[in-house]
């Protein structure tokens, strides 16, 4: 069985796909890649289905050794990848061979990097998904983050010749100032006009207490009318929750499915990847948009991925 052996796991490396869906009503968070946009590009670059499982690395990348010929691609934060000591480019398909060592360092900008291998990792889906649920020790590789010595099986060995020299535009020049577009609601009516104004005009800073559950922000307190406790309701990805402390938490992939704090707004689908890549210290501003704008941006992002997928088929034919 072809495999990839972890030499050093980095800060937090887990297997993730687009998420575990259909179980939220029983309390399972969807998990999945934080930056689904980058994760999908990685899959496209190695010819996989968009939702195939990849490794998500956080801040500090891992080192791995391959024992077979395979094709890999790295997207998201630039962790200065090297194969056998030679620098290789992000957003490009590379062939690796038996004994090759891939080393990743600290993210230059951004926070999360995705490693896809052609044909995917041979990980059994649990409840319909390969995503790692750390809280429940479920899915992914043994339900946990990767550790040194782990041997991650690959479905199949493959050469670059069969995939083509795939390459995509680098989209990882992550800045330390981010504008997250939001749609107000579901509970914006629980905040004062002044509170909404604060939310939409202040600059917030990503706290180092952020994780896959939520991106916590420090900054001006958002004023509410009569408290922020609500009767628990559903929490969508990107919900901007305002707990009693008054500063926002953007709820992400490992969030709880329900919660009892008011949510002032929801980050639009097309901007979630920006939040996923916002490292501690990043400045975040919120901008309200209407549904039409949110959908246009979402459509544009999906079309970009489709166009890339289409172009890659030609890369194969021309090879």
């Amino acid at each position: 069985m072809p495999k990839m052996t972890v030499i050093s796991p980095g800060a937090l490396s887990t297997i993730q796909d687009t998420g575990r869906f259909g179980y939220m009503s029983t309390g399972f968070s969807p998990n999945g890649a934080m930056d689904i946009y980058s994760m999908k590009i990685a899959n496209i670059l190695v010819g996989n289905a968009l939702n195939d499982g990849v490794v998500e690395m956080t801040l500090l990348g891992m080192s791995v050794r391959f024992d077979c010929t395979s094709v890999i691609a790295l997207t998201g934060a630039d962790m200065q990848p090297e194969i056998n000591g030679e620098a290789v480019e992000m957003y490009t398909a590379h062939e690796v061979h038996d004994g090759d060592v891939l080393v990743l360092k600290a993210a230059q900008t951004g926070l999360r990097t995705y490693l896809a291998v052609a044909h995917g990792f041979d990980i059994t889906a649990v409840m319909g998904s390969m995503s790692t649920n750390l809280k429940c020790s479920l899915g992914g590789f043994m339900g946990r983050k990767l550790c040194a010595g782990d041997e991650i099986p690959l479905r199949q060995s493959i050469s670059l010749e069969l995939i083509g020299k795939r390459r995509a535009k680098c989209e990882n020049n992550y800045t330390l100032t981010v504008t997250a577009r939001v749609m107000l609601g579901p509970q914006d009516d629980l905040f004062t006009d002044e509170g909404i104004k604060t939310f939409l005009s202040s600059e917030y800073t990503v706290s180092d207490k952020s994780d896959r559950m939520g991106v916590r922000l420090d900054g001006d307190m958002i004023e509410n009318k009569n408290g922020v406790d609500i009767i628990s309701d559903g929490i969508a990805t990107g919900s901007v929750q305002i707990p009693a402390s008054g500063t926002p938490i953007i709820m992400m992939a490992d969030r709880q499915t329900t919660g009892g704090y008011a949510k002032i707004a929801t980050v639009i689908s097309a901007d979630l990847h920006k939040i996923a890549q916002a490292r501690p210290g990043t400045k975040v501003r919120f901008k309200a948009v209407d549904e039409k704008t949110a959908l246009e941006l979402k459509k544009k992002q999906e079309q970009k991925l489709k166009a890339l997928q289409y172009r890659m088929l030609y890369a194969y034919k021309e090879n």
């Binding site: 009503s25 939001v182 749609m183 107000l184 609601g185 579901p186 509970q187 009767i231 309701d233 559903g234 969508a236 990805t237 990107g238 919900s239 949510k263 929801t266 980050v267 639009i268 689908s269 549904e291 949110a294 959908l295 979402k298």
Partner: peptide, 29 residues
């Protein structure tokens, strides 16, 4: 109907919890 971004919506049946409200939610589900 409360907006939860571009891909989710929360249907609020009532402001208070009751078995009656829960039955309607269960019916819809």
């Amino acid at each position: 109907f409360l907006s939860c971004g571009d891909s989710a919506v929360t249907v609020e049946f009532a402001k208070e919890m009751s078995e009656q409200t829960n039955r309607r939610i269960r019916f819809l589900a």
